[in-house]
Design a protein around this nucleic acid. Structure first.
Length: 299
DNA sequence: CCCCAGGTAGGGT
DNA sequence: ACCCTACATGGG
């Protein structure tokens, strides 16, 4: 456990000195879809019914739209500021030295503690889709079915809609939101949310040895959720970190660093990664994803 | 016109 | 367990 992040309060907002936390990389590593880059380079995001602006410069982080008490009771946990990432990185490098390159490009990424319901819906939308379109769809369902939030920050901000609000959407409604063939999946996922939520709460409460596997199986009963989406929902929406979502970018990164010659199925890659990284697999995956996206798109 | 994007389902072997 | 293809939509 790390020391509490050092916070100063001034009239512009909160100044956070959290060494090892890079908010911009964290916003861009694919874990969240509602942090939007502003014209001045800062990011504004909506989390539950809160709106926050984050500016990162000169090793300092300026937070606007919150208070010291809300920071301590909510945002510090949301941004995962109590986790020791130095220790995670050391463990990962010890287990697989080849991950060093990915860690140095993704250094500063934190895995946020996000709302399970929002993650559940967002990652069903994410399948075979691209990040900017996913963000657009989530923004429009928030504007249409969420609540307009009061905020001192510029712009209009809407909460992610509650389960009851999305329950009224038909397949046709979803199609009009441009989710394409995922429309029937979303209708049935919204309908089965309550049951899944009960199951996952029991699983997380029991903390059984195979709770991660049980959660994954529970998720994959829902149409539209396969191994990749299930592991994303677990990594970003639950405390489970022993998962390894494999998408096109992570597959490229694994082929490049781990298995440069020859083919391997996703299932085998996932088994290998879980065996190699164990409880830290989710963090390894985030470094690999971030690195692959910045490296392979520019070369 | 093609290929691609934080994949999955359904069919076949 | 693995391979194949269809699937909406928009961007390059």
């Amino acid at each position: 456990m790390q020391n509490n992040p050092i916070v100063e309060v001034n009239k512009n907002g909160l100044i956070l000195n959290a060494k090892g936390f890079d908010p911009y990389k964290s916003f861009e590593c694919g874990q969240c879809f509602r942090w939007q880059r502003q014209p001045d380079g800062s990011y504004t995001g909506v989390v539950s019914s809160r709106v926050l602006n984050v500016r990162s410069e000169n090793q300092k982080i300026l937070l606007k739209g919150t208070s010291l008490s809300e920071f301590q009771s909510f945002w510090a946990h949301y941004f995962d500021l109590y986790t020791n990432y130095d220790a995670i990185q050391k463990r990962l490098i010890h287990k697989a030295p080849w991950i060093k390159t990915a860690i140095s490009s993704g250094n500063g990424i934190h895995v946020f503690h996000q709302d399970l319901w929002e993650i559940f819906i967002s990652f069903i939308i994410s399948s075979n889709n691209n990040i900017s379109r996913i963000s657009q769809i989530i923004e429009s369902i928030s504007q249409l079915f969420g609540e307009k939030l009061a905020s001192s920050l510029p712009g209009q901000w809407f909460s992610f809609p509650k389960p009851a609000s999305l329950k009224q959407l038909t397949e046709k409604d979803w199609r009009e939101l441009n989710v394409g063939y995922r429309a029937p999946y979303l209708v049935s996922a919204v309908a089965s949310w309550h049951l899944f939520y009960q199951e996952v709460n029991e699983i997380l409460h029991l903390k059984g040895k195979d709770s991660t596997l049980t959660t994954s199986r529970s998720l994959q009963k829902i149409p539209g959720i396969g191994p990749k989406v299930a592991s994303c929902i677990q990594l970003f929406g639950t405390p489970q970190r022993d998962v390894f979502p494999i998408d096109v970018w992570v597959r490229r990164a694994m082929m490049h660093f781990y298995n440069p010659s020859g083919k391997q199925s996703d299932l085998q890659l996932q088994k290998d990664a879980l065996h190699l990284f164990g409880d830290d697999a989710g963090f390894a995956q985030q470094y690999l994803f971030f690195h692959a996206r910045s490296y392979f798109t520019k070369h």
